[in-house]
């Protein structure tokens, strides 16, 4: 087995990619290729060996910071993409409620948020999937519920539950993503 496919190595490379989000893309790709090659050439096989190789490489944040330090200041992303993160999470968190108020606007916000999420290097694929599910599930439940005719016998309690679901689940998902993304 190729050592870079080892789950520990894959997780390490993922977190370097996240920590190095503010690097110019070609520089980040080069750093990851160098580290991948290092892990591969080291020939580590067992958990123990892979762990030792990763330990010697040093923690992901330190490695990414040293790459950022080699960059002239002007070339770095101005705020590490923080504004973009805020926009992504804001769209995802509010899309559920927005769909209730204005289906078209809500759908646009939802897709814009998802596009930003999937194009960002700040999260792992698994985190992106979780974020997508929490953002998409409530509107989907609403649509399915509507098709099944549940809307015709909706009472104030059900309406409250629907609002709580549409606001709460995407918000919780966005909060989890905010914690997972390191600025």
């Amino acid at each position: 087995m190729n050592a870079t496919e080892h789950p520990l190595a894959a997780a390490y490379l993922d977190s370097v990619a996240r920590e190095a989000a503010a690097l110019p893309p070609e520089r980040r790709a080069e750093l990851l290729a160098d580290l991948r090659e290092h892990i591969e050439v080291s020939g580590a096989g067992s958990d123990e060996e892979v762990r030792a190789v990763l330990n010697r490489l040093g923690d992901a944040r330190t490695v990414a910071a040293s790459a950022l330090a080699e960059e002239p200041a002007a070339r770095r992303a101005p705020d590490g993409g923080r504004g973009r993160v805020r926009l992504t999470l804001g769209l995802l968190a509010s899309a559920g409620l927005l769909v209730l108020l204005h289906p078209l606007l809500g759908t646009v916000a939802l897709f814009a948020g998802l596009a930003l999420l999937w194009n960002s290097p700040l999260w792992t694929t698994r985190q992106k999937l979780t974020g997508t599910v929490t953002a998409v599930a409530p509107p989907l439940v609403l649509v399915v519920g509507g098709l099944l005719g549940a809307a015709s016998r909706i009472g104030p309690l059900e309406l409250l539950a629907v609002i709580a679901l549409s606001a709460g689940v995407p918000f919780a998902g966005a909060t989890a993503l905010r914690r997972a993304a390191r600025p």
């Binding site: 160098d34 330190t62 040293s66 080699e70």
Partner: peptide, 20 residues
Amino acid sequence: LAAVSVMTTSQGTIYPLLSR
């Protein structure tokens, strides 16, 4: 490099240097 302990703590930080 790592054989001389004072020269490096995290080997991974050498790759950005090599790149430069």
